[in-house]
Computed example of a mutant assay.
Amino acid sequence: MTAWLTGWLGDWCRPEIQVLRVLDHPRIVRLHHVYEGETELVFVIDYAEGGELYDRVVEKKVFSEGDAANVMKDLLSALSYLHSRKIAHRDIKLENLLLRDKSPNSPVLLGDFGFAKYSFNDGMMKTMCGSPVYVAPEVIGGPLTFEPAKKKGYDLRCDMWSAGIILYVLLCGYAPFLGRNVNATMRLVRRGVYSFPDREWAGVSDEAKNLVRSLLKLDPEKRLTADEGGEVHPCVCLCTSACVRMC
């Protein structure tokens, strides 16, 4: 599918296409075809009638724990699949989570693989990429509290930090790290200090807060990882009717 891509467009998009063409998972958008024009490439992918999860968050403001659990179950299922194949997405954010339909409990699809990368050999990546609000601290230079010797790049676990940001936003309506500008936001991310203000979090269960804490670990080696399928690992329950399987 990619052999015929030419010019700068082909060079720019070929890595994304090479990743998408091998993916086959119900919670990941599927690439059906690519059309090349003189000045553009057109990707034919699954149609997500419900639009971006970002717009649903703007509409609802705050998700119940059950609704948040449904989103996380789909996201972590997709990440389990990717990580088992040594693929890092590197740009997990609300805008890249798509709703298959307009129903209140629509399945969530992971899209936009423009920063996706295979993580072979030692598994460490160096390129700074992603979105400042969601990016893991190790991607942008490492936590400020780490010694320089520990700042050697990042691996698949950068996606799990971003998943933690998603969960935090769903449960309270805003991101834990948000500065006046991009640089200020990244400093807050690297510092990694956040809280659960009572105004928004008083009614949220300890189990949900603990899941956020487990994902937003400054040290990626202590961070939860996505499990392939989640079939052999215990559930972290967010409510009585929905759960997220984690390892």
Results as ranks from 00 to 15, higher is better:
residue 75 L to N: 09
residue 92 I to K: 03
residue 160 M to K: 02
residue 104 P to T: 00
residue 190 R to H: 10
residue 175 A to I: 08
residue 143 P to V: 05
residue 180 R to C: 06
residue 8 W to N: 10
residue 41 L to K: 09
residue 231 E to A: 12
residue 179 G to N: 05
residue 127 T to G: 11
residue 185 T to R: 05
residue 209 K to S: 05
residue 206 D to K: 10
residue 136 A to D: 09
residue 43 F to M: 05
residue 45 I to Q: 14
residue 65 E to R: 05
residue 184 A to T: 06
residue 19 V to S: 08
residue 42 V to G: 01
residue 244 V to A: 09
residue 24 D to I: 01
residue 68 A to K: 11
residue 64 S to V: 02
residue 89 H to K: 06
residue 34 V to I: 10
residue 205 S to I: 11
residue 178 L to Y: 12
residue 32 H to N: 02
residue 74 D to I: 01
residue 114 G to H: 09
residue 84 S to K: 07
residue 149 A to D: 12
residue 154 Y to A: 11
residue 245 R to V: 02
residue 200 E to C: 03
residue 72 M to A: 06
residue 225 T to I: 14
residue 103 S to W: 01
residue 99 L to Q: 13
residue 24 D to S: 10
residue 246 M to W: 04
residue 165 I to R: 08
residue 216 L to V: 01
residue 95 E to R: 04
residue 85 R to W: 07
residue 20 L to K: 03
residue 62 V to R: 15
residue 233 H to T: 15
residue 4 W to E: 13
residue 194 Y to V: 03
residue 148 P to T: 00
residue 31 L to V: 07
residue 3 A to D: 15
residue 184 A to V: 03
residue 19 V to H: 13
residue 239 C to T: 11
residue 18 Q to N: 15
residue 45 I to W: 01
residue 4 W to S: 15
residue 45 I to Y: 01
residue 218 L to P: 04
residue 231 E to V: 07
residue 222 K to C: 13
residue 241 S to P: 02
residue 20 L to P: 00
residue 114 G to M: 08
residue 227 D to P: 00
residue 5 L to R: 11
residue 43 F to H: 02
residue 114 G to Q: 08
residue 71 V to Q: 13
residue 52 E to S: 09
residue 96 N to L: 06
residue 148 P to W: 02
residue 84 S to N: 12
residue 158 C to V: 15
residue 139 V to N: 00
residue 55 D to H: 15
residue 41 L to G: 08
residue 191 R to T: 09
residue 202 A to K: 13
residue 191 R to N: 13
residue 160 M to W: 03
residue 197 P to A: 01
residue 182 V to R: 05
residue 202 A to I: 05
residue 96 N to S: 11
residue 193 V to G: 01
residue 144 L to T: 15
residue 95 E to K: 11
residue 19 V to Y: 13
residue 24 D to K: 09
residue 64 S to A: 04
residue 74 D to N: 14
residue 87 I to Y: 12
residue 168 Y to Q: 02
residue 209 K to D: 07
residue 129 C to S: 10
residue 119 S to L: 14
residue 156 L to K: 07
residue 198 D to T: 06
residue 66 G to A: 04
residue 102 K to Q: 11
residue 149 A to W: 08
residue 15 P to W: 02
residue 72 M to E: 04
residue 90 R to G: 09
